[in-house]
Structure formats: structure tokens, C-alpha cells
Simulated assay, not measured.
Amino acid sequence: MYKVGEVVLYGANGVCEITEITTKTIGKISVEYYVLKPVCSDSSTLFVPTHNEQLVSKMRDVLSSDEIKNILSQKTDNEIWIDNKSERCERFKEIIAGGDCKKLVELIRRMHFHSKIQLQKGRRLHMSDERFLKEAEKMVCDEVSIVLNIDRGEVLPLVLAG
């Protein structure tokens, strides 16, 4: 069970702080919730039922500084690209939903590599690919900037250097 004050990654919502654990009663049913505030956005508050295993499984502790540095230092095989758009979208959805930083970094690197190839051909990424890229970048940049205590703008060059 998580505690108030802990910082977690919550799916595509990014890095959040658990600001409280509260109970809300709807009708005769009382449900305990984690109250999450995204660290990089003041605009929303998330309520995650503490006993909902599916939703709680989307929460994970942020990585340590050493874990992030290890992920960023690993090389990525940029040549792997899924040509079938629907298969690619499903795979990207899985990666983003999983929230695994290593897979997200690999996804960002592959997409930037593919984007360069597309630009050389006078093309761009598909709109859906761009959306996935932005979501993956947000998740990684939020976590890396918080853990390494660096500006968000400094993160993407670190990710792409691998």
C-alpha cells in the first residue's frame, strides 16, 4: 500500500504525488481512494480506488537515479519498425499503458529515427504515431526530470543520445 507523500508514476498521467488517502461514501458504499496530483500539471486531481487492483496496478514507484541513468545509457536497435499501422498502434498503446520507462525510451528513439527517415522521403509521421510519441515523451520527460532534478527541456536530448 502506498503512503501519503509518495511520488509515483500513474500510467499515461505521468508523475503524481499521493496527496491523501481518503474515503468517499456514495449511497451506502464507502470506498477508499488514493488522491493523486500530477507533479507537472496543476489542472487535475485523480482518484484511484485503493482496492481496485486493475487501477492500482497502473501505479508504480518512480525509478531511482541509477535506474534512469542505466536505461538512458543502453543502446536501442532503431531499425525495428512495425509497418502495419494497426499492429503498430496496438503495440504503442501497450507500451504506453504499461508505463515501463525502458520500453518508452526505446519507443521514443525508434520513432525519432523513423521520423528522420520519413523526412528524408519528404514525409512525416502518421498523426497517430505523433500522438503516441508526444505521450511517451511526456511520461519519460516528467519522470526523468523529477528524478534527476533537471529541467524538462534537458531530458529529450539525453534520451535521444542513446
Rank of each mutant, 00 (worst) to 15 (best):
M1E: 11
E6F: 10
E6M: 14
E6W: 09
L9V: 14
Y10H: 02
G11Y: 04
G11Q: 01
G11D: 04
C16Q: 05
C16K: 02
E17V: 04
E17R: 15
I18C: 09
I18V: 09
I18Q: 02
T19M: 08
E20H: 14
I21D: 04
T22E: 05
T22V: 06
T22A: 11
T22P: 05
K24N: 05
K24L: 11
T25Y: 14
T25D: 08
T25C: 15
G27N: 11
G27P: 10
K28P: 06
K28Q: 10
K28D: 12
I29W: 12
S30Y: 13
S30Q: 08
V31G: 06
V31R: 13
V35C: 02
L36F: 07
L36V: 00
V39C: 09
V39F: 09
S41K: 09
S41L: 04
D42E: 10
S43H: 10
L46D: 02
F47G: 08
N52R: 07
E53C: 07
E53V: 11
L55W: 11
K58I: 02
M59G: 00
M59L: 11
V62I: 15
L63C: 13
L63G: 06
D66E: 15
E67Q: 15
E67D: 15
I68D: 02
K69Q: 13
K69F: 14
K69G: 12
N70M: 13
I71V: 15
L72S: 12
S73L: 09
Q74K: 12
D77K: 10
I80S: 12
W81A: 01
K85L: 14
K85A: 09
K85I: 08
S86R: 11
E87F: 14
E87P: 08
E87S: 15
E90T: 07
R91T: 02
F92G: 02
K93F: 13
E94P: 01
E94V: 06
E94T: 03
I95R: 01
I95W: 00
A97L: 12
G98Q: 03
G98S: 07
G98K: 00
G99W: 00
D100F: 08
K102T: 12
L104W: 04
L104M: 03
L104H: 06
V105E: 02
L107I: 02
R109C: 12
R110Y: 02
R110P: 05
H112D: 07
H112G: 02
H114I: 01
S115C: 06
K116N: 15
I117D: 13
Q118K: 11
Q118N: 10
L119P: 00
K121F: 14
G122N: 06
R123H: 14
R123D: 10
M127W: 10
D129E: 15
K134I: 01
A136P: 06
E137L: 11
K138F: 01
K138G: 01
M139Q: 07
V140Q: 00
D142P: 00
D142F: 07
D142R: 01
E143R: 00
E143T: 01
S145N: 10
S145E: 06
I146F: 15
V147R: 08
L148A: 07
L148K: 00
L148I: 00
L148C: 08
N149Q: 15
I150G: 08
D151Q: 09
R152I: 07
G153H: 14
G153I: 03
E154N: 13
L158R: 10
L158N: 05
V159R: 03
L160M: 05
L160W: 05
A161Q: 11
